[in-house]
Design a protein around this nucleic acid. Structure first.
Lengths: 137, 137
DNA sequence: ATAACTTTTGCAACTCAGTTGCACAAATTT
DNA sequence: AAATTTGTGCAACTGAGTTGCAAAAGTTAT
């Protein structure tokens, strides 16, 4: 179907099925992170379980990353091409308290944290909550 | 019953009922943050809804704060006496990937974040995931 | 002290996100 | 083409969180 979609999927070792192309397209069009229930609504008729497993596959293969923003549903957003989801790849997320949209602040890296002795850092989830540029107007 | 429990509750304008004293005692004894389901298990027979509303009351009155650590259940931990849950009161939390315990790193303040133009910061949830001192041994 | 009212508690029922088993379909390998 | 692996769709379920409602406990007014 779409060359670019296929390339993106294959670059992460994900077999490009029709379903996966559709989901990836939604994720690309999406400016903010999207949850499984929201994703479901983007399709006329789609199976929750299939979408769920598609997201899981995408996440395992680091095509997308998940964000726990405290709204009850985990949200997902595209990783950039070179992302390995290592601590140095991580960025801050922003949840708007008004419109409930979650933004990837790709340009804002997660600050270093000096953990107490004996603690080992693997990853960080940092969500800033406030009002987004759109709702502030 | 217990003077200290009553004082703590009253200092936050929470009427000290028997139930609330019991819940507060659990929270005080607790070294790590606790979720509603975990709290339920601490009691022989206790109503989920009552515990739920107790936690809500505690949180609204800033006796405790909530932590979204991405484990599926929101966890709660005592605030320090002077806490107002303002950005400057916030600290980093640590989730151990092994034992699933969530620690308040009270000594580690959340680093300042410079949001893009147009974004307004209200609060921050920062969870570091890794291995805790106990599990690393 | 009693009645009227407010607050808290306990029970049941429900919502909603996430997850799993299983059978069928599609793709891949032999 | 047959055998095997992988993906999809459906249904059913789990588990956290939440709400309505009535009884119980506590408070205030008479």
């Amino acid at each position: 179907m779409n060359k670019e979609l296929d390339r993106k999927l294959k670059s992460r070792n994900i077999k490009p099925t029709a379903m996966r192309q559709l989901v990836l397209q939604v994720l690309i069009d999406q400016k903010t992170a999207i949850s499984l229930p929201e994703l479901e609504q983007k399709f006329e008729k789609a199976d929750k379980a299939t979408l769920y497993r598609t997201l899981k596959t995408f996440e395992e293969n680091k095509l997308i990353h998940s964000i726990e923003d405290g709204t009850g549903a985990v949200k997902y957003a595209l990783c950039h091409e070179k992302c390995n989801c290592y601590p140095e790849d991580l960025h801050v997320h922003f949840l708007c308290a008004k419109c409930n949209q979650t933004y990837c602040l790709n340009e804002i890296q997660i600050p270093d944290i000096n953990l107490p002795y004996g603690f080992l850092l693997k990853s960080v989830n940092m969500v800033v909550k406030g009002i987004c540029f759109n709702c502030k107007k």
